[in-house]
Amino acid sequence: MRRLTLFLISFLTWWLLTWPYDFSSGQMDWQSFALGIFAAGLVSLLFVSIFTKSPHKLFILKRYLWFLYYIPVFFYYCVKANLDVVYRVLHPKMPINPGIVKVRTKLKSESAITALCNSITLTPGTLSVDLTDDGYIYIHWINVTSQDTKKATEEIVTKFEKILERIFE
């Protein structure tokens, strides 16, 4: 099961990277196709040990629908973050007030925490620095409004946590 899933994913990646199908003439490059099957088979034989432990989660449609909902939310915060940073950079006095705060997350699985940290890094004024085993994340904040763990958690983490819980947990 895990091997088959890994084979499908690596073959899809190969397909996207080389793109053997030509749109205008409708012709297929069978040589590249066969090489892709060979390479994906090799990958799925050799590297199955570093693949995810629960591949059945990849086939639940509800997660993908939540992911589609997550994209516009993420895009909105991302553009907001960029305008905020541009304002701080171009302002002649540079109104920054930086510091490292500590927040707590409820998420458990590794992929969820990775996605949360990446989202935090790309959204307004925050950058994840390190995380501990018991669910704390250290965050560099360009404009610290509260040093308390609970308040900082509410302000930074909660808005993504709810959606990411449904996608990855």
Partner: peptide, 22 residues
């Protein structure tokens, strides 16, 4: 703007913020 932030801001962490996002 990201590269201007890389030059203007005062320390590594702030530079990372501006440069990475923008």
């Amino acid at each position: 703007f990201g590269c201007i932030g890389l030059v203007r801001l005062p320390d590594v962490y702030n530079r990372l913020q501006a440069a990475t996002k923008c």
